[in-house]
């Protein structure tokens, strides 16, 4: 499991820059960010160093922030990399809440997804998937 930083934002001009500025001013490096948006609010999902510390720091600064455990899997950066993973989830009756992917180097990608039942690492391992460890993504 990887800890993702989650921040609730109003869908208004300037809220995202206020967030990233606050993180930047704390000297924290971000590795990935994905934004889910609705008409009224957005949810920023971030991989950054020391996510728990950053969540506390953002809360103190007046943000609604939390850490969320998510699943992350290394897949080969080739056609079918993600599809194989999702085929497995489907056959194992694992329902995905949300997912996103990013490329690491030329050969691999990391697929990140959130499921209702968080403890599926073992099932993934047994099916031959390579689980990403926190140190693959961020520093502590």
């Amino acid at each position: 499991m990887i800890l993702q930083l989650t921040v609730f934002l109003q869908n208004e001009k300037g809220t995202l820059s206020r967030l990233t500025r606050t993180i930047a001013d704390a000297g924290i490096n971000m590795h990935a960010m994905f934004l889910a948006d609705t008409a009224e609010f957005g949810i920023a999902r971030i991989f950054c160093d020391a996510p728990e510390k950053v969540a506390q720091m953002l809360t103190d600064a007046g943000f609604r922030a939390a850490v969320t455990p998510v699943n992350a899997v290394h897949v080969p950066n080739e056609p079918g990399g993600l599809a194989r993973l999702l085929d497995f989830c489907n056959s194992a009756d694992i329902n995905i809440e949300y997912a996103y992917c990013f490329k690491v180097g030329d050969d691999t990608a990391i697929d990140v997804f959130k499921v209702e039942n968080e403890n599926i690492d073992e099932a993934l391992r047994q099916a031959g998937f390579r689980i990403a460890e926190p140190e693959d993504i961020y520093a502590f």
């Binding site: 989650t6 609730f8 889910a36 999902r45 609604r64 969320t68 949300y98």
Partner: peptide, 10 residues
């Protein structure tokens, strides 16, 4: 309150 899922907030 969990803020991570759009579905729950909505």
């Amino acid at each position: 309150y969990p803020i991570d899922t759009v579905r729950k907030l909505e």
